[in-house]
Amino acid sequence: MALATSFGPGVLGRLDGSVKRSGAVTRRNISALRSAYWLVVISGFFEPLLYLLSIGVGVGGLVNKMALPDGRLVDYAVFVAPSMLASSAMSGALAETTFNFFGKMKFMKLYDGVLATPVRPMEVALGELTWAMIRGSLYSAAFLVIMVVMGLTSAGWALLAFPASLLVGLSFGGLGMALSTFLTSWQDFDVLGTLQFALFLFSGTFAPVSSYPEAVRLLIEATPLYHAVELIRGLTTGSPHPVLIGHAAYLVVMGILGLAVAGRRMGRLLLK
């Protein structure tokens, strides 16, 4: 499963390299959906689904029922599905805001063109984020529909989990924007990809954090994907608890901080 992050940097960035500039940043991204790029976008939906089927259903068949925090016992797929939703919201938002954004900023000099117009850096950032959100929300909605069809959650809880998945995307989008202003070379993506992969593995995604040693557990609880997974799992498994508000608050704060940092640093980076 080194898969998700194993293909080298430059993949998505190069794909929309032929795209023309446009003042409206979000619209530019939608118009970027050309030739092979739309297939990449579509495939972004299949990936979490395939993981769900392989790990949730396939490996799940080898696992007894899992205990939720409220004591109920559920199938492993019910436990894993919200993790996949949260992880794909994270990686979608990060890919779009770090990888693509970085390529456009550093190599295609795309924003130099945009910024020659009255558009301000922060508006650029928000435009990019909006695009990441639109794409991410489509993935999330489709994934939730499949969860309902597979009986992994109910329609009502899925409706509540949907805005939560948007929050996850927004929050990681903000983080990604901020991170991208610190990246200096494509090599940094290898490091970023590895960190992201570690989050994907350890954030209570495949096993409850309570099964980890105390020190590891505390470390995990400080990282963002953990909160995203817990928030979404709380909703899709239908066990609302006040602590969910805490998880949501973590994500809101991270998103706002990310955007604030991105806005400040981007202005400095791009306007010199």
Partner: peptide
């Protein structure tokens, strides 16, 4: 662009 497809 074919390689990400092949991958995925």
């Amino acid at each position: 662009g074919y390689f990400p497809m092949l991958m995925r």
